[in-house]
């Protein structure tokens, strides 16, 4: 029995099956809860995975090693992000001026504010590096973490929290500042709240959704290109 348990834990098939089952379970519970914006499906799936690991007495490091067979797909999936960006090129060409004025500043400050606050509160460099890509879409943020160091898990946790907070703050501040332009609200959702912001933006309408995707892609690319460079100069 023990030998069977050990050999099952040793095969990538179990790690992949556990991941797929937990993800599908997470998505279905998410749908049943009425798609709450405060609790992304991937978070529910991660809870199910953690519960599965605990039940199976599966060491997290072993799980990570075996599930790498599946997450290998993250590479080509990240490259594939070029396709939606290419399809949005007419938005970019039409609005290159405001985008050029706002995007570098907005994306830069999204990273800067959080790092500054954490630094003032005495957080160590590993925490600062994990917080810096907090507004970048997860696959690109994982590439940034490879470059600047920091904890992958802490970074992804911060990313989810940032996405949820963004949907709350954009609704709140949009009302306070009396902004009704769907392009602005969508862009702010995508720049700050990556994929979670996009989901919220599509609830506001297709224009908001398109601008959110645009904001997310450009923020991701800008941050992935310049953050490691800036980090090298400062550190």
């Amino acid at each position: 029995m023990n030998a069977l348990h050990a050999s099952l834990l040793d095969t990538p098939a179990l790690a992949v099956a556990l991941t797929l089952a937990a993800y599908l379970g997470g998505v279905s519970l998410f749908e049943r809860m009425g798609r709450p914006s405060w609790c992304p499906a991937v978070l529910i799936g991660a809870l199910f995975t953690a519960a599965g690991l605990w039940l199976l007495r599966y060491d997290f490091a072993d799980y990570q090693r075996n599930v790498a067979w599946l997450t290998l797909l993250l590479g080509p999936a990240t490259v594939a992000l070029a396709v939606p960006l290419y399809q949005q090129r007419q938005h970019i060409f039409a609005l290159w001026k405001p985008i050029l004025c706002c995007l570098p500043l907005a994306a830069g400050l999204a990273a800067f504010y959080a790092v500054l606050i954490a630094w003032l509160l005495g957080a160590p460099p590993a925490v600062l590096a994990s917080l810096a890509p907090k507004s970048v879409t997860a696959p690109l943020a994982m590439g940034i973490i490879e470059q600047i160091g920091g904890s992958l898990s802490l970074m992804l946790g911060g990313l989810l929290i940032t996405g949820v907070l963004t949907t709350i703050f954009v609704s709140l501040l949009g009302r306070v500042l009396n902004i009704t332009d769907r392009r602005l609200l969508g862009f702010a959702l995508g720049v700050n709240g990556h994929a979670i912001g996009i989901v919220r933006a599509f609830e506001l309408g297709p224009t908001a959704g398109a601008f959110a995707s645009l904001g997310m892609s450009l923020t991701g690319i800008f941050t992935a290109v310049f953050l490691p460079l800036a980090w090298r100069l400062v550190a």
Binding site: T19, A46, A77, A138
Partner: peptide, 22 residues
């Protein structure tokens, strides 16, 4: 890309699981 992009959330999930271990 149409086949892979919807899988992104699932592909980052194993990393998210790590939050509970840090």
């Amino acid at each position: 890309s149409q086949a892979l992009l919807p899988l992104l959330a699932m592909l980052i999930m194993p990393g998210v699981v790590g939050v509970f271990f840090v």
